[in-house]
Design a binder for these strands. Structure first.
Lengths: 144, 144
DNA sequence: ACAAAGTCTACCTTATAAGTAGATTTTGTT
DNA sequence: AACAAAATCTACTTATAAGGTAGACTTTGT
């Protein structure tokens, strides 16, 4: 399971993607619409800002806005940024690899080989989908 | 990521699968071979016993052994039994479904539709693989 | 000057992961 | 019957992270 933080980040980013190019959106507006605790969301947006995905404007008329284009933000980067590895086992992770503590030979480990298939498929799906795809799917589902 | 508990459970079960039909295996033997803290493993094996996957024999000559056949134990049931849901979001889980707290309409939620693809693929892979498959893959990888 | 925004620092509470210690019960062997 | 080898049970411990809150501070448009 993704942490609440990651889930909220995905909903907040989708919200901002829908308002892309329309100027800053208030934290309070996002929090209310997406039902995210406001103070918690503040911290999440700050993290997204540090990662260079969103930017903000202070003072009256301020708020948050997407810095990258919606087509450029993949789900995998958001999830990795908050929760870390996608893989189910450390010995199978691309970005957070750790040597297997239990098995004698990673090259012939059967568990590893299955978990690697799972990771590859998951990464594939999460890399091929961006914020733009989320909106696209939403529109497709609505118009039919 | 799977919890250590689940990881250890998978390694312990694979060990027992390799000894299937050869009588009880000592906790200490499994712990040593698979590098699992013995006391921790005790608790894991007890849980696996409550789930009806393994059984045990007390006293001299005792130990643990697989109750089901290796072909009957899927990875998905082990993982679900210890860590719970496979899905990345509660609203996409088969066995641990929870209504989405944020989205207005789950039927048209774009995030949900992508996460459902991920879950379906993961469940497919983890259901189609059993302890017997782990051993099979291991042998394949070794013999070539 | 003022109010509306985001920003920063510092908390809090609860649950879970991961592991340990030691007494108890069962059972095969002598 | 005695003994020792096993699993079993109860009860801790310790550390970390999740999830969230409070309030003072800074920036900026009007």
């Amino acid at each position: 399971m993704l942490s609440k933080k990651t889930q909220y980040a995905l909903y907040a980013l989708t919200h901002l993607a829908k308002e892309y190019g329309k100027g800053p959106v208030l934290i309070g507006k996002i929090a209310e619409d997406e039902k995210i605790p406001k103070k918690f969301l503040e911290g999440i947006l700050l993290e997204l800002r540090n990662k260079g995905i969103v930017s903000s404007k202070k003072g009256k008329g301020g708020g948050y806005y997407l810095l990258k284009r919606p087509e450029e933000v993949t789900l995998v980067e958001v999830i990795r940024g908050f929760d870390g590895a996608i893989a189910l086992l450390p010995c199978v992770s691309e970005k957070y690899y750790e040597e297997c503590s239990s098995c004698k030979d990673e090259a012939t480990c059967g568990i590893k080989s299955i978990m690697k298939e799972v990771r590859d498929k998951t990464v594939e799906l999460l890399s091929n989908n961006t914020l733009a795809d989320i909106i696209l799917k939403e529109n497709m589902l609505k118009n039919i």
